[in-house]
Computed example of a mutant assay.
Amino acid sequence: MMHQKLRVGVLGCGPISQAAHFESCTKASNAELYAICDSADDLRQRMTAMWAPKVAYSDYQAMLDDENVDAIIIATTDAFHVQLAMKALHAGKHVLCEKPLGITVEECEELAQAVRHSGRLFQVAHMKRFDGGIQAAHDFIQQEMGNLVAYKGWYGDNSHRYTVTDAVQPKIITSAAKRKPAVDPKSDLQRYYMLAHGSHLVDTARYLAGDINEVEARFTHRGGVHCWFVDIAFANGTLGHLDLSVGVRMDWHEGFQIYGENGSILGKTYNPWLFKSSEVDIFHENGAFWRRPLAADGHFYRRQVEAFAHAILTDSPQTGTSVEEGLAIVKTMAAIGESVRTGRSVCVASAQGAV
């Protein structure tokens, strides 16, 4: 237990803050929920009563001007991420920004440049990197697997997911006064699902198998299911395939299968709101045995905040998704979209425009 704690200000009192960030900041061993900010008076007052931060703000700049706030968690809608992160960096704050980093390659490139000049720590909130099972897979790959041969990853958000979240999440409080982007994000579900779910699928693939050089994607929307099949070429020569399917008629279906020189990995990941670590089975060729790490602590959002705080308080390297990796994820998603439109393979490094 650290005696010094990172004083966090959470921007946005919407669903992700209510379901994850507020609790994470109050449970973290090395951070505290110092401030919250939301322009909707009714929502901010309700969350203040529930979570008891030291201070609550209706104006974002006022929270940024508070010298006691060390870091900002940006928990707003995707379209606002970059501009609000820029303001936090200019105010000298460290930033944990909800995924995706942004919605266009160009704005993310601008943000990455600002981070490089800021001297502040910036982390994208891909909380699956703090799933103990996925971390165990990563460690085996780095330390024992040898050359990777193939990576298959899938993410199937199911048709009954709201039955699950209604049962396990706290009741989400909404406000008619909430700030909305100019365009409803859900007016284009193909783009919305790629940003919301594809960002997780790509980040896990990059975390486990490395940088992605090229993608070739196909897309269909049939029977109420949005489905992308993506062949990928990793920079290290590994072959890859990603399956993003939203609305699958079954249980939540997420995981990965990895073949390597000295073993293989089979991973099953659960609906995140069950706070259950992935079940990861690792086969060791040397000795011919399977093992499954316990990974008992399934609160990846709290572990994410603790890792973010630890890196800042101890001046240690960050273990979460960096801004450069966040940019690479957005470029990969943009490349997938271009491949779907053109029917050709696309180099990730050359991808531009909106996801």
Score class of each variant (00 low, 15 high):
305 V>D: 02
27 K>Y: 11
343 G>D: 08
210 G>S: 00
228 W>P: 03
10 V>Q: 06
78 D>P: 00
45 Q>W: 01
57 Y>N: 02
339 S>H: 00
167 A>R: 15
101 L>Q: 05
30 N>S: 02
210 G>H: 00
237 G>L: 01
321 T>K: 11
234 F>A: 07
166 D>I: 08
307 A>S: 08
33 L>K: 01
107 E>K: 09
344 R>V: 07
108 C>E: 05
303 R>C: 09
272 P>R: 13
206 R>C: 03
15 P>V: 15
43 L>R: 02
259 Y>L: 15
263 G>D: 05
203 D>S: 15
91 A>L: 03
173 I>W: 11
56 A>H: 07
256 F>K: 04
347 C>D: 13
203 D>K: 11
219 F>K: 10
214 E>P: 01
122 F>N: 08
185 P>T: 08
306 E>Y: 01
307 A>Q: 01
22 F>V: 09
131 D>C: 08
156 G>S: 11
55 V>A: 02
328 A>T: 11
160 H>R: 14
267 G>E: 00
324 E>G: 02
152 K>E: 15
351 A>G: 00
101 L>D: 04
67 E>L: 06
125 A>R: 06
287 G>F: 13
23 E>K: 15
39 S>D: 05
126 H>K: 13
266 L>A: 15
353 G>S: 09
20 A>Q: 12
17 S>K: 10
308 F>D: 02
49 A>Y: 10
263 G>E: 06
214 E>F: 15
124 V>C: 12
132 G>M: 12
131 D>H: 05
253 H>T: 14
199 S>Q: 09
245 S>M: 03
257 Q>M: 12
102 G>R: 07
144 E>L: 02
82 V>H: 02
177 A>W: 02
169 Q>A: 13
128 K>Q: 11
192 Y>G: 02
136 A>S: 15
268 K>Q: 14
315 D>C: 10
33 L>Q: 03
99 K>G: 00
239 L>K: 13
328 A>I: 05
112 A>Y: 04
133 G>V: 04
174 T>S: 15
102 G>N: 05
190 Q>W: 00
8 V>M: 10
6 L>Q: 04
147 N>K: 14
37 C>Q: 08
260 G>Y: 03
346 V>F: 01
143 Q>D: 12
79 A>Q: 11
259 Y>E: 13
155 Y>Q: 12
270 Y>G: 08
326 G>D: 04
55 V>H: 06
251 D>E: 15
291 R>L: 09
135 Q>V: 04
330 V>E: 06
177 A>E: 11
80 F>P: 02
293 P>G: 05
1 M>L: 11
300 F>L: 07
171 K>I: 10
234 F>L: 07
61 Q>P: 00
11 L>S: 10
271 N>P: 09
